[in-house]
Amino acid sequence: MKAEARVKLSEWLVTLPSFVWLLVLFLVPTVLVFAITFKPATPYGGIGEGWTLDTLRTLGNPNYPAIVWRTVWLSIAATALCILLATPMGYYMARVSPSRRRLVLLLVILPFWTSFLVRIFAWKVLLHPEGMLKHALVSLGLISPETSLLYNAYAVLLVMVYTELPFAILPIYAASEKFDFRLIEAAKDLGASSFRAFRSVFLPGIRVGLLTAFLMVFIPSLGSYVIPDIVGGPTSEMIGNKIAQRTFVDRNLPHAAGLSALLTVAVLVPMVAITALRRKENPRSALIEEGV
């Protein structure tokens, strides 16, 4: 009993720093954002006295559904593409020789050595209307000279997939590495085709990695701001851009806070749903435990 109490105490002590970290840097700001939503805005960009529900009413802005829809479909498409590309990659990395694996792993994380912003600007150069890629595609007859590779929703999607791909590869690779590939051999021995074995044995086997990859890509995608701002056009605005506009241009902090709160809720819903789903399947496993 005494030993158990000591274990409990040390568990608490170990958790304390990360708990304080989350409390100060995550919970307190989030609560503030929710609180500011219920404050009135002043014409000079400040936060007024008292409490009001005005902001909630203005969130019913008729122009928002289109922006919310665009944010959601771009995020879903980016997530789906990332997982589609990352799964074979993870499989390959788990199967390849250790020296080759180290090299590939290095290549996957190499982009992080350069600033995120610089890499987005590199895409602008790559897709430049007078650039090499454009000229190549035009001379191959694949696109007309008037087609713009930049400043549309597809450019945003492309750069989102590019930026977030490593976040999908890493958890899928981690899960694949732990996967027992003898199971695939067993499935084949039992008469399954390679594809059937991949689908029915490998994919369920790395489920946790897939779920983590989903969260790691989908959540940051919902909050995208810089990518649509730089490579997006006049009709590729996402929620993040709207929040920035409300903060800097319209100087309406409560409205910006309301949109941020909405986004937080939208992020929490898939998180909670997945946690609940996994609890139901396996009541004792936590979200991250078996993952990365």
Binding site: H128, Y151, I230, P234
Partner: peptide, 21 residues
């Protein structure tokens, strides 16, 4: 007009114009 625009832009239009974008 918006149908003809590449984007609404406050900063990048300067380098964009200079580079022929």
């Amino acid at each position: 007009w918006k149908k003809n625009l590449a984007k609404f832009e406050n900063e990048q239009y300067k380098t964009g114009l200079a580079s022929g974008e």
